[in-house]
Simulated assay, not measured.
Amino acid sequence: MKEFLFVFRNDYQAVPKGSPEEMQAETKKWMDWIGGIAAQNKLVDRGNRLASEGNTLKPGNVITDGPFMEIKEAIGGYTLIRAESLEDATEIAKGCPIFQFGGSVEVRAINPL
Score class of each variant (00 low, 15 high):
A74S: 11
I37D: 02
D32I: 10
I34M: 11
E26M: 14
W33S: 08
E73G: 03
K29V: 07
D65S: 10
N55I: 13
G35F: 06
N61V: 02
G54N: 08
G60S: 08
W33F: 15
N41R: 13
A25T: 14
W30M: 11
A39Q: 14
L43I: 12
T64H: 03
E21F: 11
K58H: 13
R46T: 08
G54R: 01
N41F: 00
D45C: 06
I34R: 00
L57G: 03
G66D: 00
R49I: 03
G66M: 07
G47E: 03
E70Q: 08
F68W: 14
M23I: 12
N48D: 15
K29F: 05
K72N: 10
I81Y: 00
S52L: 12
I37W: 03
T27K: 07
G66S: 09
M23S: 09
G77I: 04
A51V: 12
R49Y: 13
G77E: 02
E22Y: 01
S52G: 13
V44F: 09
L80S: 01
Q24L: 15
P59K: 14
S52I: 13
T27I: 12
K42C: 05
A51N: 12
R82W: 00
G36S: 13
S19N: 10
F68R: 02
I81E: 00
E26H: 09
E22H: 05
P67I: 10
I75Q: 03
G77Q: 05
N48L: 04
K29P: 01
E53T: 13
G76V: 07
Q40M: 15
W30F: 15
R82S: 04
N48T: 12
L57K: 06
K72P: 07
K58S: 09
